[in-house]
Design a protein around this nucleic acid. Structure first.
Lengths: 194, 194, 194, 194
DNA sequence: GATGAATGAGGATTCATTCAT
DNA sequence: GATGAATGAATCCTCATTCAT
């Protein structure tokens, strides 16, 4: 019954963004539907035109954010370039996305460590699988990485980048271009074929 | 007014453990005080003899778990040994703790990404600072690590270990001793002085 | 966020009246929100659409009742008449209001002697100040009363009327017109210019 | 099962006084048994050695306070003196008691307007009946007062005195000896035989 | 007598969701 | 589509009271 079409007034996106902002600021806890509605400038009931329940709202928000992340991460990727360059480009993009989209970072972290992630593993971004996972897979198959399970690679890499981004955001310190490359080198030196 | 003393019947610890178990299973959401009480085999009101509010219960649980973690991590540490050995020992201990204490791992992850961590940064385990942070600090000062900010080191390391432990737990796959060493090598090769 | 407007179904007033009735019958104690809701024929949550909390409900009820009192007291007041006549009219009106609105009388008494009155002295009926206090003030300024502090006059007068009304209500005795005039004479003879 | 005897440590009185103090400060509402116990320096359970329930505690406190009031009011009463003098002495004593025992005044007011007074009318101070009511009765029988119902006299008188005392206490103004006599004259001129 | 941990029913309040307009 | 008043189950917490020590 949900209406994704002709949301000309953009209420659907407004609700998603408000949910994101509120969860970032106050956690899942501090984002009741009534507050989301008010923050988005819509009536409480209106949310239910676009989302079946609060649960699906969160779930769809997750995919929405992950899509944005996939797009940002894969920007400028060029299959012609050496793999290490492509990897570094991805990492830099990812770091920048986190820093520039604090609420997305915080939401993703909360989502991933919540029961949602465990209970709805099938609910994820196709775009992310296509753009990001694929590249990792390629690196594994072509022996650019150590011989580790592919499914361990992504969280390992993410862990360090998230740590760095969170650190910059919380500490009000700005990493220089070189600092970021140093951080990515930590990752690369760890996971690359030795 | 809380009574930590002579809780001979162990109700305080029972409440902490029940909270841990329920949060692991159902998230912060699925752990109402009434359920915690029932799970712990105490009356709802009894919880409030030991904790001022649900918030302080969570906060004290965090320190409690972090204390246990610190103890487990630092087991068998020997200042006489080479630094790399000490580092590997810590990592192995940490990985094992996570795998053997799934509920602690899940709770810590949820706690760290929740607003609690941001709102109460001063509320942390002294034991952890003494046993674990100190060893990292030592490694930094004695140039065993790359020249990265000390505050970035810990979350980076943790990220990979947590990823590995979560992976093993969720996928029902048991890392062999060698697999674990491989994972720790990822970390070590990344952060060690190049 | 409260909605005083277009409460066409009259739920707000129903809640006020139910609160009044229950407090009269059982005191502040015996008026839990759940009972008020049931008595008013609304859901418990509905009360919170109209009042922020139980405290504000009580506070707004006080002003509501005091407004009704002010209106009843000043009925038929005529600035052309001699002051003593106006005073007697007010007193008779007040006595009648108390007798005819037992729940208002009991509520006001409980409210005035509760910490509410001390903690929120600024929360009072403007109507009462305009209609009733003003007339007393006039009497003081024009030397119809003894030379006593104006702020002492009102409670003194009220004390006797409340005593009389309470007496009639509790004893199931009906004062005759003459009896009431006698009581008012007690007041008047006490406070009038000797 | 209550023990009024050999309360050598004075715990019973301590509980009564703590209850009085807390009710004065925070109302019936703000005087939970646990707080009374702490304020009185006894264990919560101890209160139940002296009082069957919270209800009886309040009831007994009322009689206790009323006894003290009766004693204070009738101090210096002399059957040989003219009735008006005796009446004035009583009034002055009563005013002074209220001003000097603010918590008793506030408690009595709250008690009288609460459902307690209605539900337990038989629970009152014998001392008060003997010392104070008796004197009023005498005045009525000997035609010192107007021809009003005897049961109306006391609350009428009390109303004005309480108003005056409350006024002084709340406004931080000290009535002079003359001011008090003026107030009592209001009463006397009102109720005396015209 | 005295203690205070323990109880659990009851109270204020929140919030996801519905539905008549 | 959009609204927001209304719902009532669920939540956190309080507090009079009991009882083993």
């Amino acid at each position: 019954m949900n209406v994704q079409l002709d949301d000309t007034s953009g209420k659907r996106v407004a609700v998603l963004n408000s949910t994101l902002a509120l969860i970032k600021e106050h956690g899942f806890h501090g984002a009741p539907m009534s507050l989301i509605a008010k923050h988005a400038g819509v009536a409480a009931g209106t949310i239910y035109h676009y989302f079946d329940s609060k649960e699906t709202l969160i779930l769809e928000l997750y995919v929405h954010v992950k899509d944005k992340l996939a797009l940002a991460i894969s920007a400028g990727d060029d299959a012609e370039k050496p793999y290490k360059d492509r990897f570094f480009n991805l990492m830099i993009n990812q770091f920048n996305f986190y820093v520039e989209n604090e609420d997305s970072l915080f939401f993703l972290e909360q989502y991933m460590s919540s029961p949602f992630a465990k209970n709805f593993p099938e609910c994820d971004s196709q775009l992310f699988a296509d753009k990001v996972i694929t590249l990792f897979q390629y690196g594994i198959e072509n022996a650019h990485f150590r011989n580790i399970d592919s499914r361990l690679l992504a969280p390992t890499i993410k862990g360090t980048l998230v740590a760095a981004a969170t650190f910059q955001l919380s500490e009000q310190i700005v990493f220089s271009k070189e600092d970021i490359l140093e951080v990515i080198s930590i990752i690369w030196d760890g996971v690359k074929r030795q």
